[in-house]
């Protein structure tokens, strides 16, 4: 016995997959349903998992101890001021605080978490190790330096800089190729998951197979 939930799931999966042929009413129906339901779901999610536990409940339980929460609340309300033309400019204050805060946080995170360790890990040993390791270390170093020089914007890519940055582009393209293949394999496994659902949870029980 196939449950109604599996039927709906299978029908919507086929509706979405029908886009592979061409745009059609079934795809439009599934697309609109998907977009609409997800929007409603995320509104509920934002209320249940963000606003209630992080803002409303602490304020109701212990207002004096949570008074600092009124600041982000005020910033959130400011965003809606854009619908009042006379004071619409105030919405930008909230955006400015949000952007400024995250840029400050991200700057140090990137510096500490990426720039320093990646620079350190590029300083590799070129002697006293096996010949093949020397070769790979040299390739690694050449890759990092040439790619960094490709992203140097203060000079025209001519002469030596042009040649080195050309090598950088080759390194980038090779890494893109590897990344492309790797990600496509991951997507294929997602597709297999969908087909597995259609065959094992829908078609096989429908045909009486266990």
């Amino acid at each position: 016995m196939v449950s109604i939930g599996v039927w709906i799931n299978a029908f919507l999966t086929l509706c979405i997959l029908s886009f592979l042929y061409k745009d059609n009413p079934f795809f439009r129906f599934a697309e609109s349903l998907f977009a609409g339901m997800s929007l409603g779901y995320y509104i509920g999610l934002a209320n249940q998992q963000t606003l209630m536990p992080n803002l409303f409940m602490p304020l109701f339980r212990d207002f004096s101890g949570s008074v600092v929460l009124l600041i982000p609340m005020a910033l959130g309300i400011l965003l809606y001021f854009r619908y009042i033309p006379r004071i619409a400019w105030m919405a930008r204050l909230a955006l400015a605080v949000y952007i400024g805060y995250y840029i400050g946080v991200m700057f140090l995170q990137k510096l500490h978490g990426e720039v320093l360790p990646q620079s350190r890990d590029t300083i590799l040993q070129l002697r006293g190790i096996a010949g093949i390791d020397v070769l790979w270390n040299a390739v690694f170093i050449a890759g990092v330096i040439s790619v960094l020089l490709y992203f140097y914007f203060s000079a025209e890519h001519k002469g030596v800089l042009g040649k080195v940055s050309r090598v950088g582009i080759w390194f980038l393209m090779i890494s893109f190729g590897a990344s492309f293949g790797y990600t496509i394999m991951a997507r294929i496994s997602l597709l297999m998951g969908r087909f597995s659902f259609l065959v094992n949870d829908w078609i096989r029980p429908l045909m009486g197979a266990s």
Binding site: K22, D23, A30, F34, A35, L39, Y42
Partner: peptide, 19 residues
Amino acid sequence: YITYDQFAYAAAVSGKMVR
């Protein structure tokens, strides 16, 4: 504004491109 869901957004924009 479309939706906050990643793939619902992708489906809606893809539909828009085709239509």
